[in-house]
Amino acid sequence: MSPLARRRLGKVLLNAAGVAVFLFAIFPVYWMVATAFKANDQIFTTSFIPFPTHFTFEHVDRVLSEGVAGHSIWLYLRNSAVVALGTVLVGAVFSLLAATAVARFRFKGRTGFLIVLLIAQMIPSEALLIPLFLSVKRLGLYDQLLGLIVVNVGLTLPFGIWMLRTFVAAVPRSLEEAAWIDGAGRFTTFWRVLFPLVAPGLVATSIFSFITAWNELIFALVLMNDSGGYTMPVALQYFFGQRGTDWGAIMASSTMMTIPVVVFFLLVQRRMVSGLVAGAVKG
């Protein structure tokens, strides 16, 4: 084979491998969406039906009207949104303050705090489940979305601070110093100079916390007894408890749960990588 032909073949093989990876990644997601829009006779079949030829909204309609566990999927989507947004709002303020402290100040105990952050990220949330369950119960937050928000703030904060501090550190100090020279106060400098520059990082961090809270199953399972307070993950696993698994309804619901996360992911993909492996990747 001539070198040119060999290079061309190599290129074809590489692209073929790329397509194979693409298909492996996307097929299961596609299959979820396709099943959500197939009529039941096309779902429960041993043959392979690649596209929903009888495209139907019946499953979507059913989960929105009848729903599961006595409530429409809307309610669970709303609960999940309340929990995730509550977590993000509180988490954003707290992590911005702490990230500013560690990225802009040198103080006694700073390294200690960073190590605590690292250790806090290592603690498996499963280990916190039992004591937090008892505390939430004692505080009267059992069966309340507020209880879930509080727990999720705790679970997402260490990582939020860790990620945000790199964004704060990336803002050149000279900008703040310029504001100081012009006589801006401490708060003005923070609000008018640092905050706008850190805002994109704050958005990325917030989206990460949103996704974590949105996906969280184990605490929602334990802290919510009344089905009116279920979040999406709990509602989804509830489907399997019912007799005869209604795959159309399950796939319609899980598609609805997945869409917001996919949108967010496509928005902040690059930042998430830089945040997760911050310091290790140069690029």
Binding site: A25, P28, N215, P233, L236, I250, S254, V262, L266
Partner: peptide, 23 residues
Amino acid sequence: FVVVGIMFAWAVPPVAQGIIWRW
């Protein structure tokens, strides 16, 4: 193209991952 494709697999919530593969 491939990065966008694999992003979809990455974005699926863990509960939905379990559901999809169970199916």
